[in-house]
Amino acid sequence: MFFRVIDKARLPDLVKGLATEYEVIAPIAKGEQFVYAAVTDPADMRLDYDTTLLPPKRFFFPSEETLMRFRVADNEVLDDEVYAAPRVLFGLHPCDINALLLMDNVFSGKYEDPYYLRRREQTLLIGISCTPSETCFCNVWDTNEVHWGFDVFLTDLGDRYFASCRTVKGAEILDRFVENRQVTDQDTTDFQSVVHGFKNSFKRVADTTQLPVLLDAKFDSPIWDEFGDRCLSCGACSMVCPTCYCFDVEDRLEPDQKSGVRVRTWDSCQFKEFAAVAHGQNFRESRASRVKYRYYHKQWGYLSKFERVLCVGCGRCARACPAGITPENVIAALQTGEVR
């Protein structure tokens, strides 16, 4: 990797420079909370944010998107182009970059999803270091560090940023848009002390020992009924999750009924109809079976294919769940048999 140091006071230059060629998306304040939104004035950015309400997945996989326009009469596709404008996502935390890497695995492979991948290609990612919040537990999955998947990663050293450039594009935008200098030994020493401090600042621990085995061995455990009784099937956990990718597809006709659009929307395995098939059969009818499935897939289904769990410990689902169901509670219940 290639490293540079940027004076903190100069960072707005980078944002302004990027804004001349890209749409810049960054965290901004919204009431008490934070959201990702398009920014033109660097002063609006809140790089001190803890976490955002929604993860950045929607810039690659929108909550609703048109896959294609069609004509009914001859069942023809009129347009299936992917329209992806050049963008920069500025200020992503390691968990959210790691989450995109997990999503990449799903949307690539034998069947490449052009919608997601085209946007991914068209988007620069600039990461930034963070301070763990009350609900963060990325340390549990080692997703508090990120080593690739970004163009530039900025580690806050107080008065300056230690910038790691992962891609040619990343190095190029630094050189073009912001004054920067070579890294000195002192910078590297300060970097080390910051990242150690970060690592030691996590308070949350979870016992993840042999989770895939426990999920199978305790598949019929009453803990699932307890969680099921509490769950409202609202799907909030999936919507706010940076690694939940399930979707639904539906056709919408124009008023003249002659043409229309095929649209995909976010879906959730927590919704009752998610696994229902014809003739009244539903493979996950009970709420207990659906709550269980979400964890089963994250901690074992995905792992069985990609050797990582499908969670980055961002804590968003824990914040969003009206029933207080959190990954940490579920993991603890699997270990101890007791539901908190």
Binding site: G109, K110, Y111, D113, D248, D267, V277, H297
Partner: peptide
């Protein structure tokens, strides 16, 4: 239940 048929939509788990 299936939507995509290509391992993305999650319905057929």
């Amino acid at each position: 239940r299936m939507k995509c048929g290509v391992g993305k939509c999650g319905h057929c788990g």
